[in-house]
Design a binder for these strands. Structure first.
Length: 216
DNA sequence: TCGCGGATGAACT
DNA sequence: GTTCATCCGCGAG
């Protein structure tokens, strides 16, 4: 149990690197239920990851598809490093690199269930209900004050922004097509905790009939 | 609820 | 000049 977990209802433990999958789809599923922790000058905010998207090697929708550039180089770091970029001039997106060093791929974090520091998140994000606070990748980053300074972090070992576990098991993982992209839009590479009330996307995308459910 | 249009800025071609 | 993995507000149903 990490000393960094003080203040949380359930303690958040660091995850040993050898337990983190070096495979994009496996990592997208592994991250569901884990806790994203943000520490700013001694105060902590945290939320459970309830929705992710996989961006595979050789995937036209992945930013790494056309090779390494100054912006996307973090996607090519060893699995478990952050890739943060500004989208549409307004929203930061937080990804986790997901393959061996040199292979460009990542997992986008799309929604959190706020667990701790909710009032601070509301101040950061302009105040809203917990179910809306970190719903969507842009709001997620806004609520936790994530920006380009958090690009390239070792996301399981960093201090200011890291991912840990409180031991909670995910009852059921569902999947659907990815949201908001124009290339390879038919791939069912969005993963989420079935029944969560903190998901982005239309209600229809989140219904069990549309989203095929698979064991976690 | 749902769908639409505009704001927005950095990277890339 | 084009692209972009978004968000917000608005109006119709």
């Amino acid at each position: 149990v990490s000393a960094d977990s003080r203040g949380l209802k359930k303690p958040v433990a660091r995850i040993p690197r050898d337990r983190v999958p070096a495979d994009t789809v496996r990592l997208a599923r592994f991250l569901l239920g884990k806790v994203l922790v943000r520490e700013i000058r001694g105060s902590m905010s945290a939320g459970r990851i309830v929705e992710t998207e996989a961006y595979l090697p050789n995937d036209p929708a992945c930013h790494a598809y056309r090779g390494m550039t100054p912006r996307n180089r973090s996607l090519f770091l060893e699995h478990g490093h952050s890739y943060v970029y500004l989208c549409y001039g307004t929203s930061y997106m937080l990804n986790v690199s997901s393959e061996a060093a040199g292979i460009g791929a990542g997992v986008l974090l799309r929604a959190l269930e706020p667990l701790h520091g909710i009032e601070q998140m509301q101040r950061n994000a302009g105040g809203s209900k917990p179910t809306h606070l970190a719903r969507g990748p842009g709001r997620l980053a806004s609520a936790l004050k994530i920006d380009r300074r958090h690009d390239g972090l070792d996301i399981f070992r960093a201090e200011e922004l890291w991912i840990g576990t409180d031991g909670r098991k995910v009852p059921k993982v569902a999947q659907s097509v990815r949201i908001g992209i124009t290339k390879a839009a038919d791939e069912r590479l969005r993963y989420f905790i079935a029944g969560s009330r903190h998901l982005s996307g239309s209600a229809k995308l989140n219904t069990p009939e549309e989203a095929s459910c698979t064991p976690p």
